[in-house]
Write a protein that binds this DNA or RNA. Sequence first.
RNA 1: GGCCCCAUCGUCUAGCGGUUAGGACGGCGGUCUCUCAAGCCGCAAACAGGGGUUCGACUCCCCUUGGGGCCA
Length: 488
Amino acid sequence: MVRVRFAPSPTGFLHIGGARTALFNWLFARRQRGAFILRIEDTDEVRSTDESLAAIVQGLRWLGLDWDEGPEVGGSSGPYFQMQRLGQYRSFIDQLLAKGQAYPCYCTPEELAAMRQTALLEKRPPKYDGRCRRFSSEDRSARDRAGQSSVVRFAMPTEGVTRFHDLVRGDVEFENALLDDFVLLKTSGVPTYNCAVVLDDHAMQITHVIRGDDHLSNTPRQIQLYCALGWEPPQWAHLSMVLGPDGSRLSKRHGATAVIEFKDVGYLPEALVNYLALLGWSTEDSQQLFRLPELIEKFSLERCGKNPAIFDPQKLLWMNGEYIRQVSKEELAKRALPFLQKAGLVSETGDDATQRLVTQAVALEQEKIKRLDEVPHLTEFFFQEEIAYDPAAVNQVLKAQGAEQVLEDLAQRFEAMTDFSEQAFEQVCRQYAKERGIATGKVFHPLRVAVSGRTQGPSLFGLLALLGKSRVVTRLRRARSLILGVRP
RNA sequence: GGCCCCAUCGUCUAGCGGUUAGGACGGCGGUCUCUCAAGCCGCAAACAGGGGUUCGACUCCCCUUGGGGCCA
């Protein structure tokens, strides 16, 4: 059975790049009917925080990327935190030590720094020279007895090449002589990334390692470790990086990069998932919009691209608009409600009448909404008693010739109405324009500004119907006094 | 600095020796229309450069250039 994992370090939020990696793992697992495992690589004790862990979990949950094993859900290959797995590592290290495939290194940070300096001066690659590898066991016990602290280094093969087949990159090879004896275990007794990742992936029976391109050069080291332990390495798939608009690695200075920030400004998770899926993966017909089941069905590592992808907020925004237009008005209202509450337009408790108003209001603006955080501004005149009039609209539209008369006439006609449907309002307005021989625009535009305070908004008659007779008439009268310059 | 990876419109990409180099976002123009959107129609826009291989290269190989990553 296919088993994949997403293994973030809890040292920050779940960012776009990480989310893309998690998504591809998840899609692959779901497509193969395998298991998606979440493992927390918290061996960086100073930078790991509980807040980051919570943020990552929250981000994944929001995106809908559920895991079959890991924090909060458990599983038979736990624990899923590396710091809780420390005890499981020692025996493998001892095994390597006994076979001479690893050795203690007593070099101090100062010696290492000096070594690096010399190498650089001599224009050699700054790689560990393996001096401690040659010590005899007597040397080592003497040093241990003297209380010298040590790390454990892996004894890399000094010749040959490490080849592997990468599911997205094809065949890749590295010369072993160029790879140095990397540290397996730090003086603190905590394993390094390259060590823990191999031990854990093996223990958790990971079949496919799908991760960022930035780990490609770590792969030969890990493969050698698998071999030294007599284990079969997993299959590899290295995804290209996600870059910012300037072509450098996506980071905070490019704007929003934490997944949760996208939630906060009103992106739908399904839109972000769809967009992320297209960042480095595509179908032969370049299809853009996928429902989740379709994405799972069509996803394959073979169709992942090799080139880095620049994150394009504009395309995401377009896609979000597409998704917003696809959901039902009830669903849209449900999702927009927190934004209206946050803006103070709708109370936190919310009765049924408010609920209905919200539903109708968002429905009128649905085709226009690209992000949920636009909803308060787009619909505020439905929730306010005192609306704000855009000064430019007042000057250009309300104060135009004849507008004041139109508003007064319409107020009267509206008051006489008994049916307050969209159609009824439209009929009355058109009838009025016809009778007076006025262009419809001369009627519609002042009317819109009078009831909403602005020149742009939803369909005029839908707007009137939802506002209701009394509010419409009140606003027409207030707009008139605004034109005449008197207090109502 | 060494090693590795990558290279098609501004961006995401299709293409897997013979295509008018296709789609999507964005841009521009038109259309529809009570405004704004949405929709529809159309336009501009790319094979980084140089060598090979081949009857024929976007496609295969090499070099250069550019970008990215890893090791410190």
